[in-house]
Design a protein around this nucleic acid. Structure first.
Lengths: 344, 344
DNA sequence: CTGAAAGCGCTAACAC
DNA sequence: GTGTTAGCGCTTTCAG
């Protein structure tokens, strides 16, 4: 047994020495460079494998100025299905590609976001997936412009591909669903217009009202997406004489459902309710809630793919994926919580 | 303007040159070494700040053999509250400490787990938080023994501190709650004993039955924690003549709640139901479900703290945190889904 | 096709 | 206290 430094991990120099080749050749073989004789390459790879060699990602990334050792995943929260489901799927797909995902929570605070972005850049991330905070800083945009970025859920107006739920259509459809049932006094609870998806959803609602020939001036509350806000704002809306409540936002929906229940109104007779998010949870309610269902896993798959494509493109010098929005269409799943209004 | 390489980021050599000191001094000042004159240190830090210097974490970690640039977070899933809530809080706390969290999903597959662990080690992580997969490999244990580890939710029998929900007590309490209401035909739906928390919960159930003076041979199904399994297994259990169903597991609870509803039994008159997880969701059900509530944020705080303490200890050479389990006590929140059995 | 050697940006001995 | 210098483990010109 050679006098290797004890218990230390095996590196390229070890492999090179043991095989009687240079570290350059080892490196090339391991990185699949075509500039090495196939048989040699194979021998090196086999040996590396048998020695349980695992490249030091730090050294690799530090040396090769371009490397996909790490990518960033920057989101405002992760303890909500809209984010956790996507984080899960992205982590899976990126890991399959051999890149590690650094998870970062901004709590929707632009300052934190910028700080974390800086730290990520300091970690030489190859690129990142981001749900920008509501008011992204200019400096943030500047940083984002310098590396492959895929936007998720929210857009910040930067030149980058993004993956979003096509909420406009879903919201329009939801309004039309309610209108078709005979509702004319519809209230809307959503997220602020400053949030790109808040704006999109609101647009969908307005369009739905227009298509249904209803008064566009419906009772409306736009609040930051938390359960508490959802509950409180829904309670206010329900104090009015609306016959239907449409909610655009997952956390808001949980709060709104609670408020609807607390209001004592019978559903759907005295109140029709359309919520947003994961139908499995809302199916627990009695009656089960009509839900706008978003395919988070599909969103994640597209985001991961786009990011990997961007990295490939940058590496190969080929054109990057088109920066346009990539939309995933949610589905309105009618359930027991929507029906004709009882009294008009 | 000096002929700096254009648009490149500023590094220690730049700072050193600009201040007329050596890179060593810069490094020392930036790392708060006491071996540098305070006024010089301050000047360096101020300059670094003004130049927007951010240290390259890769170089730092590669050079300093010990560094807390990265920590790993290795969990089987993240799209379930038990994991996403904890991931969120840990990411927050670790980020506040300046370390980045690499998120890794094992899908409860021991092979994947090992592969990912190897990759994490190759990234020179300072330590990690892990929820071991059901059957962790020996090689996995060996790797884990070499770095600061904090176990979460599940234990794998390694010598490391761990943070767990004290489910034994909660399950015992749940059984006693049901027994006190007059139930004697209680069924249990939980996770397999091979999972450490499955075993713990089952032990709690058995103890509860014993304390209540009930027959320990209750109808029981132990299945992998997914919603589908929960629904199917609950349906089977409900086909029997039990008057109460106790569920030990968050995803199982969602499925079980669905199955209970599908069974058509009136709750709580014809069936008392105790679920596990986030009360906010289960409050949507009608009646609201009696829930074993786990403080995930508290779990996360403890896990993060323990990990940081372990890192500090290793750095300072002081003793590591005691490897014993650190328990967070869940609360049984009685709600409308549990009541006296109607017919016996 | 392969090897020698020069870094990547930082920290840590070791001198002064 | 501070500077010089040698790496950390890998990739990558540049020669051959």
């Amino acid at each position: 047994m050679p006098a290797r430094s004890r218990r230390s991990t095996v590196g390229v120099v070890d492999l090179a020495r043991e095989l009687g080749v240079s570290t350059a050749t080892v490196s090339r073989a391991l990185n699949g460079s075509p500039a090495v004789r196939p048989e040699v390459a194979e021998r090196i790879r086999a040996h590396a494998e048998s020695r349980g060699y695992v490249a030091n990602r730090l050294a690799r990334a530090l040396s090769a100025h371009t490397s996909r050792a790490f990518v960033g995943f920057v989101i405002p929260y992760v303890d909500t299905p809209a984010y956790s489901a996507v984080a899960a799927e992205c982590a899976r797909l990126l890991s399959a590609d051999g890149t590690q995902m650094i998870l970062t929570i901004t709590e929707n605070d632009p300052e934190r976001e910028l700080r974390q972005l800086r730290e990520l850049v300091a970690s030489r991330i190859a690129g990142l997936v981001i749900s920008p905070s509501t008011y992204a800083l200019d400096e943030t945009r500047r940083l984002l412009a310098e590396l492959p970025v895929v936007e998720l859920h929210r857009a910040s107006g930067i030149e980058a591909p993004g993956v979003f739920s096509d909420d406009e259509q879903a919201m329009t459809e939801s309004v039309l669903h309610l209108a078709a049932l005979g509702h004319s006094r519809i209230a809307y609870l959503g997220t602020p217009e400053a949030l790109s998806n808040g704006a999109v959803r609101l647009r969908g609602v307005r369009r739905g009202l227009e298509l249904a020939g209803l008064d566009p001036a419906v009772p409306m509350r736009l609040v930051e997406p938390t359960r508490e806000n959802g509950r409180d704002a829904a309670a206010e809306l329900l104090a009015g004489d609306t016959t239907a409540l449409l909610v655009g936002g997952g956390s808001l929906s949980v709060g709104a459902a609670a408020a609807a229940r607390a209001s004592g109104r019978r559903i759907p007779d005295e109140l029709s309710l359309v919520v947003y998010g994961d139908p499995a949870w809302f199916a627990l309610a009695d009656p089960p809630l009509t839900t706008v269902q978003v395919e988070y896993a599909e969103l994640a798959r597209r985001a991961a793919r786009l990011l990997l494509d961007s990295l490939d493109a940058r590496h190969a010098g080929t054109p990057a994926p088109e920066p346009g929005p990539h939309l995933v269409t949610p589905r309105l799943r009618p359930a027991g919580s929507t029906g004709p209004p009882l009294h008009r």
